[in-house]
Design a protein around this nucleic acid. Structure first.
Length: 488
RNA sequence: CGGGGCGUAGCGCAGCCCGGUUAGCGCACCUGGUUUGGGACCAGGGGGUCGCAGGUUCGAAUCCUGCCGCCCCGACCA
């Protein structure tokens, strides 16, 4: 069973690749570092997107769309920003191809060179702030609360499906505010939205906190992050929300007149989550039999498998259940395939992570029951046909909560605290996970720890109580523990 | 870009070292039949520029050279 998936214990990254491939989430493509997102993978992303979009709109944001291309000159207007992204940009230099005069095929037409090269957006701050300059004159134009769903390109050296691809799908919010305080509140509010989404929908517990100066987004004054812990003990940065100060307003000369007609630069935020979340979802819940998807994001929540194959009596029960569950808002499908045997289908749906499987066969129907199997625990229960719809609706909810709790328990078991550098290294080596430790607050120390241990400061957690201590590396005084881990 | 591995049917592999008829196996696929409560069985069948380009040779999947691509480990990163 599940004979095609490498066990996690044997080789975690191979396990991850196997899941992506065998469950049919994504394929490698003809383009280096770019994946084809298959219907199951895209279905999960669509559900994420729909929920997030609703949450953004509920908090006052609207969607818009900006160009894929950014004039090269824009990128150089914010010094920090260009430094952060310059090394990984795809550049458009020409606009035409021609037949190769020396043979077959096409070549770039040298006469079609662009006056100014275009950069395929790695993120859209620059083109958006260049546009905002024209949109903002007065405090009455603020706040401007805009989100866009888009693809971006970052020419990464090493890619992995969903976790790091050269092209990825994401949303990027870009907001403009009259005051510093309001912008900070916006960034914090979105930070909260991300955390709520991760925990309530992905069933993926996250630590909320601020990034250190060293780990901050290029061009940000403050970066808030949600950090999740994967099953191999490595951390995943799952979403970031940035307070950009007036950096972009100054770079793109975006000013507004306040109510005293005094000209001020605008305060900004930006924030994003990407298809990386799908990778986080996989690594949080899945097991050696395949994908496990939390019910709220599962493209198919319930599958009905007639045993051994569809007949009139079975289909009557199946279709009635389908109708009831659809009415209750459950995403359900009936497997009407007569060619494949039940055992094959069971294995297949387990691989694909469908949360609940309902097996309906004549033997059970004589006793007026069906078999309900849950994907997360592999538990099978005989459930009376009467009241089955209610049972399933409740079970989906239970599974959602159980998955979250299981992930919380894992994280708790893999969160350590230490004051000793050797112990710190030992924990990283043997157990992994989050480590809370004191830090003297300098980038120099942070980098030295990274060099020695490969661990980075994931965040300065919001809910960490202040406590006096000594930096784990330098012994200098520290007021608060920070969260270390190896990360993706 | 450094270090390691690998490119042979959709997938997984054997053949290569030691060159020699028509390139093979398992899974998948197609047809027919028998099956059907945890990945069915039998029979028949289709599918290959052996990663690409050059070279050596009477003859290359096999030997030589160059290139390309992929995977794993590192540096970069969401």
């Amino acid at each position: 069973m599940a004979k095609e998936i490498t066990p996690r214990a044997e080789n975690y990254s191979q396990w991850y690749n196997d899941i992506v491939k065998k469950a049919g989430l994504a394929d490698n493509s003809a383009v280096r570092g770019c994946m084809v997102i298959k219907p199951l993978g895209f279905g999960i992303w669509e559900n994420m997107k729909n929920q997030l979009d609703k949450m953004f709109k509920d908090t006052g944001h609207v969607n818009a769309y900006f160009p894929l291309f950014i004039p090269k000159s824009f990128l150089s207007k914010e010094a920090q920003h260009v430094e952060g992204f310059a090394k990984e940009c795809a550049v458009v230099t020409h606009h035409r191809l021609m037949n190769d005069p020396n043979g077959t095929g096409v070549i770039v037409d040298p006469s079609a060179k662009l006056e100014e090269e275009l950069i395929v957006r790695p993120t859209s701050e620059t083109i958006i702030w260049n546009t905002y300059r024209d949109w903002i004159q007065s405090y009455r134009d603020l706040p401007l609360l805009i989100n866009q769903w888009a693809n971006v390109v970052r020419w990464e050296m090493r890619t992995r499906p969903f976790l790091r691809t050269a092209e990825f799908l994401w949303q990027e919010g870009h907001t403009a505010h009259a005051t510093k305080q309001e912008a900070i509140e916006e960034a914090e509010m979105i930070h909260e939205v991300y955390a709520r989404f991760a925990e309530d929908y992905m069933a993926m517990p996250v630590i909320k906190g601020a990034k250190t100066a060293n780990e901050r987004f290029a061009g940000a004054e403050d970066t808030f992050t949600i950090e999740a812990l994967m099953q191999d003990g490595k951390a995943l940065q799952a979403g970031t929300s940035h307070f950009l100060g007036q950096n972009f307003a100054k770079a793109f000369d975006v000013k507004f007149a306040d109510n005293n007609n005094k000209e001020e630069y605008v305060w900004a935020t930006s924030w994003g989550v990407s298809t990386r979340l799908v990778g986080g979802l996989i690594m949080t819940h899945s097991d050696d039999e395949g994908l496990v998807i939390p019910p709220r994001l599962a493209p198919t929540q319930v599958v009905i498998v007639p045993i051994p194959k569809p007949n009139e009596t079975i289909m009557e029960v199946a279709e009635k259940l389908e109708k009831q569950l659809k009415a209750a808002g459950v995403r359900i499908k009936i497997d009407r395939d007569k060619k494949k045997r039940p055992g094959f289908k069971f294995a297949q749906y387990e691989m694909e992570g469908v949360p609940i499987r309902v097996g309906i066969g004549m033997r059970d129907l004589e006793k007026n029951v069906v078999e309900v199997a849950r994907r997360d625990t592999k538990e099978k229960t005989s459930v009376p046909v009467d009241g089955l719809d209610r049972y399933i609706v409740d079970l989906l909810e239970t599974m959602q909560n159980d998955l979250f709790q299981k992930a919380v328990d894992y994280r708790t078991a893999h969160t350590s605290e230490t004051t000793d550098m050797e112990e710190f290294k030992g924990i990283l080596e043997n157990k992994g996970g989050f480590i809370k430790a004191h830090w003297d607050g300098t980038t120099e120390t942070e980098l030295k720890i990274k060099e020695e241990t490969k661990a980075t400061i994931r965040c300065i957690p919001n809910d960490e109580e202040p406590s006096d201590g000594k930096c784990i590396l330098t012994g200098k005084p520290s007021k608060q523990r920070v969260l270390f881990a190896k990360s993706y």
